[in-house]
Every structure is written in C-alpha cells, then in structure tokens.
Computed example of a mutant assay.
Amino acid sequence: MKLSTLAKKRILAGVGAVVVVTAFYFYNDAAVEQKISPVKVVFAKTDIPPHTQITEEMVFEKVVPGQAIPPNALSEVQQVIGKWTVDGYGVAKNSLVYNGKILDTGDMPDAAILNLEDGEYAFPLLVDLETSSGNAIRPNSYVDLYFVTIQDKKPLTGKLYERIRISTVKDSKTQNVFGAENYTESAGTSQLQSSQVASSSNNPSALAKLYTLAVTEEQLDLLTKAKVMGNIIPVANSDSYNDSVEGEYKLDKSMQEIHDYIETNSYDQKLTELENSVEQASFKVGDQSVDTNSEPVETEDSAVNNEDETVKGG
C-alpha cells in the first residue's frame, strides 16, 4: 500500500520535530552542564591587607559551580603564593583572588627595596642609553662599577667593585623597563634573553634611566663619595647573568688605589682632622683641666675682688 503524499509529509514533519527537540535537549543540557560545572578557585583564608606578600597560610583552594566565577579569578594557590597585593587593594576573608590585583615582587613600585637581601642597601644610579649598554642590562644581573673623574686636567679611571647586583631598572617615569607590558616577541627563537626585548617602539619611555644597585653598607659609603667626586659607570660582562660564579671577591691593587684616592680626597677625612684639633684645644669641665696655651678669662667676681684689694692696699 502506497502512502499518500499527505501522509509522507506528516511523517517527515514528525521526524523533523523529533530531531529539533532532541537537538534542543542536548544543547540545553550541555549549556546547563557548562554553567554548573564545578571549577577550582583560590579563596583568601584570612584578611590580606594591601601591600602584603601572600603566603601559603593565607589562601586555600575550593571547588565551586563555574557559573558564579568571574573569568579573572585565579584557580591555583601556586599562582598566588609569593606575590603581593597592590597598594590600596586588599583581599577580604573568603573572597576570591583575582589576576591583576596581585603582582610579582619585581612588578611592585617599591621593588628596589623588596628585592634587597639581608644587609643590603639600595644605591640609586642614573644611566643613559650609553651607560645602560643600549638598554640591555636587566634586573638581577651583575655589573662591574668603574670610577671616572678629571684630575689635573687628565682623566682618572679605575674599577671600584665587581659583581654588583642590579635590583631594579626604571625608566624616566619610574616604571619597570623590563615589565611584561614592554615586551615584544622576536621571530626565530624562544630564548628569553634574545626573544624578549624591551620595546621602545610600543612604549617610547621604556628606556633605562635609573638603576638601583644592591650594595653593602661599606660599598654604599664609598659609592656615595665617588658619585659626588666623579662618574660611576656600570659595565656588563660574560658573567652578568651568572648567579653562581666561583671564587671570592678580591680587592686588587688597582682597585685599592682608586679606593684610597676617593677616601683621601673625601671631606670626612678633613672633618676628622678638624675634630682632632678641636679636642686638643678643648678642656674637660669635670677634671677642670685647661689648655695651657689659652689666655685666662677674667670674670665679673674676680674683677670686683681685684678692686677691693687695690683699695685696701692703698
């Protein structure tokens, strides 16, 4: 028995309706499952104040429905530990931790201080395109420092220190020159030092202007004097990126001569001589010891007594 044309149309319409309903069901089920699919995110275990380095004890992971989670919420504690909350923004207890609201130490505005190790001091040094080796010297690399001045119309140069660590590199607006926003990828290589370079085309101000050097207290004293007396030039070498150079730092003869020159011509030497001369000319009130070279001082009482004695003698 042959089906009529109307019957065929009804069958096809029914099959089409079933297909549409089935497709809608599976689509809706997938959409609902995607929205309620559990995801792992990071919460604050306690209140985290602004400008605070996050430790493992401050955060925890929790699985929650994905529908309620913003896309910039961090999902693993390892993405959070060791980073800092930015100034003016803390994380409340049981709140999500968001990307962009926490920074690496090197990206903090005061990274020059945060990067210092125990016993280190921050020494600022202005640089330009030449002394920064064409904007090539990066943070946490090591440089040798040379002293340059003019003595009797002749140049005097010499090495001051070896392997001084650069804590931060800032531009003229005190922004990090080697921040992630200033990087561009070069084709043909995946090495960090060669494939990522500070891009002055994307950011014209991303040129090194200020180095912060991590130095000891003794080095800080001599470098401060040297900067007043002349110029300090940072020089990179083949070990600038090497953190494990063998051998101890030694002050050779030429370096010692430069150190002696700076100390000899520093004001504090003359100040010491002045203090010594003052001590020699002073007297101790408690011991009533007076310098023999000083002239006697006539007081008002002694003058009156002398007049009385003169009257009696007359």
Rank of each mutant, 00 (worst) to 15 (best):
E257T: 12
S205Y: 14
F147L: 05
E217I: 12
R163P: 05
Y183D: 06
T149H: 03
T168G: 01
L251G: 03
V245I: 15
D171Q: 01
N182R: 05
F178R: 03
G179H: 00
K173H: 12
V148R: 10
G247S: 07
A206L: 00
Y142M: 04
K159R: 15
S201D: 14
D260P: 01
I164A: 06
M255I: 08
K250M: 12
K153C: 08
L156H: 09
D144C: 04
L220S: 09
D152C: 04
T212H: 15
A208E: 05
N140K: 12
F147I: 02
Q175I: 01
A136Y: 10
G247C: 05
T224V: 10
A226P: 02
S141G: 08
Y183V: 06
V197E: 10
D252S: 11
Q256W: 12
T174W: 10
L213I: 10
G230I: 02
N231P: 00
S201G: 07
P234K: 03
L156G: 02
L210K: 12
P139H: 08
I166P: 04
T168H: 00
N176M: 09
D221E: 13
V235P: 03
Y261A: 06
S254Y: 11
E181K: 14
Y161A: 07
Q191M: 10
Y146E: 09
L145F: 06
I232H: 04
L145I: 13
L156T: 09
E248K: 15
